[in-house]
Simulated scan of single mutants.
Amino acid sequence: MLREQEFVGDNFFDEFWFWDAPDPTHSAVRYVDAKTARAENLTYVDSYTNKFVMQVDYEGKAVPLGQTNSTGRKSVRIHSKRLFGDGLYVIKASHMPVGCGTWPAFWTSNKGDWPVGGEIDIIEGVYNSKVNMASLHTLDGCMIPKNVSTIQQGHLDRTNCSYQPGCASSFSDKQSWGDRFNTNNGGYFAMMRDTQLGGLGIQVWFWPAFVDPQEIPLAVSAAARKAPGTVDTVVDIGSFGAPQAFFGADMGSKSSCEMSKLFHKHEIIFNIALCENGSQLSNARWEVDYVRIYSAGAGTFFF
């Protein structure tokens, strides 16, 4: 059985730290610390909805790239203070960043020398994407078999998980990304990670917000602070249906991807990167209803 814990509203400020170092992906942003983000309203909790909001500075003037101490427009990147291993990761979001050059992501990664310990991208894409893409990044030695396409709803785009660009599957549901996602008031994503020897692998699901909550697993759709206290990895996850993305299970020493060796405990990360210094960025924001984790423990503090 896995036990639930949840991040919602002001709790994000307690459970996440703000990255303010240069962007490792070299995008056109300057990530700011928590004090700056809150003072300049780049992150806050909506007083009416209790949603946690993160956004790009679309009002201030972006410092052109190439100048001394300039790295583009102010933005937000947050990391969980705890590290989590195998379990069920759920996010309900009402809005994701869109606009010229936006490159948002919700992902998990080992804290260390990337990609040692692996990376799992649950929500990711650039501003002109049509659907969401889930992907893995590992050290050499992880290949996803092509026949997983028969078990998932999405399309397997890349099979080699090593480094960049990693293995990836694009979702079949066009409501999973961008303006369509936002027009429908968002939706629910769930990622099941079972990377132990002989485990079920890594799977990602999506449900648009307009789907009847009774047709979505309660561990995913329950309102903030009203979710079941535990889930069973076999019985409960078995009712989720076919995932949008499925990255094959660890089959032992003869496996094409020994996940038990390649994936360590991860931090949870949100960010909004930019491919360019675009000006049409008033909708480049996350609105997060909650993040919910079901795991064997409360997570390991490292920050």
Results as ranks from 00 to 15, higher is better:
Gly241Ala: 03
Pro104Lys: 01
Pro213Asn: 03
Gln196Gly: 05
Val220Thr: 04
Ile120Ala: 05
Ser47Thr: 03
Pro115Tyr: 07
Phe189Ser: 02
Val8Ala: 15
Gly66Lys: 02
Val116Ala: 00
Val235Leu: 13
Asp57Thr: 01
Ala224Gly: 14
Gly118Ser: 05
Phe16Pro: 00
Ser169Glu: 04
Asn271His: 04
Ser27Leu: 15
Phe13Glu: 00
Ser255Asp: 05
Ala209Glu: 01
Ile91Thr: 08
Phe16Gln: 03
Cys257Ser: 12
Ala39Cys: 11
Ala37Phe: 13
His264Thr: 11
Asp10Ser: 06
Gly199Trp: 02
Pro208Lys: 04
Tyr294Phe: 11
Phe12Cys: 02
Ala284Ile: 08
Asn160Asp: 04
Thr230Gln: 10
Val45Cys: 10
Glu215His: 13
Ala62Asn: 09
Val235Pro: 07
Leu83Met: 09
Thr150Cys: 02
Asp14His: 12
Lys254Arg: 12
Lys51Tyr: 13
Leu274Asn: 06
His155Lys: 14
Thr230Met: 09
Met192Cys: 13
Ile216Tyr: 08
Asn147Pro: 00
Pro228Lys: 07
Trp177Val: 08
Met96Ala: 09
Ala223Thr: 08
Val45Met: 06
Gly99Thr: 12
Phe16Ser: 02
Ser80Lys: 13
Phe210Gly: 05
His26Ala: 13
Trp207Leu: 04
Gly117Cys: 07
Phe263Val: 14
Tyr31Cys: 02
Lys226Ile: 00
Asn50Arg: 04
Leu281Asp: 03
Ala39Leu: 09
Tyr31Gly: 03
Ile122Ala: 05
Asp113Ser: 12
Tyr188Gly: 03
Leu262Pro: 02
Ala28His: 06
Asn277Ser: 08
Gly278Cys: 00
Gly248Cys: 15
Ala219Asn: 04
Asn128Trp: 11
Trp177Leu: 05
Met143His: 07
Gly187Phe: 11
Gln152Ala: 07
Thr150Ile: 01
Trp207Met: 03
Arg158Met: 00
Gly278Thr: 09
Ala62Glu: 08
Leu83Cys: 01
Met259Gly: 10
Ala93Gln: 01
Tyr89Leu: 02
Gln67His: 11
Gly85His: 00
Gly101Leu: 06
Ala245Trp: 03
Ser27Gln: 15
Pro243Val: 05
Arg285Lys: 13
Lys51Thr: 11
Asp179Cys: 01
Met1Thr: 11
Phe270Ser: 13
Gly72Tyr: 07
Ala284Arg: 06
Gly297Ile: 08
Thr43Ser: 10
Ser80Thr: 12
Ala190Ile: 01
Gly9Glu: 15
Asp157Ala: 10
Asp212His: 12
Asn50Thr: 06
Pro243Asn: 15
Ala37Lys: 09
Trp19Glu: 07
Asn184Met: 07
Trp17Arg: 15
Arg285Tyr: 14
Lys265Thr: 12
Val116Cys: 12
Val76Asp: 05
Ser135Thr: 14
Ser282Ile: 07
Pro243Arg: 15
Ser239Ala: 14
Asn160Val: 15
Val231Trp: 11
Thr43Trp: 12
Leu197Glu: 02
His79Cys: 05
Met192Ser: 15
Asn69Ile: 12
Pro217Arg: 12
Ala190Glu: 01
Thr43Tyr: 02
Asn277Tyr: 09
Arg3Thr: 08
Gln280Val: 02
Glu119Gln: 14
Trp103Asn: 10
Pro115Cys: 00
Thr300Leu: 12
Ala134Gly: 10
Gly99Ala: 00
Gly201Arg: 14
Leu200Lys: 08
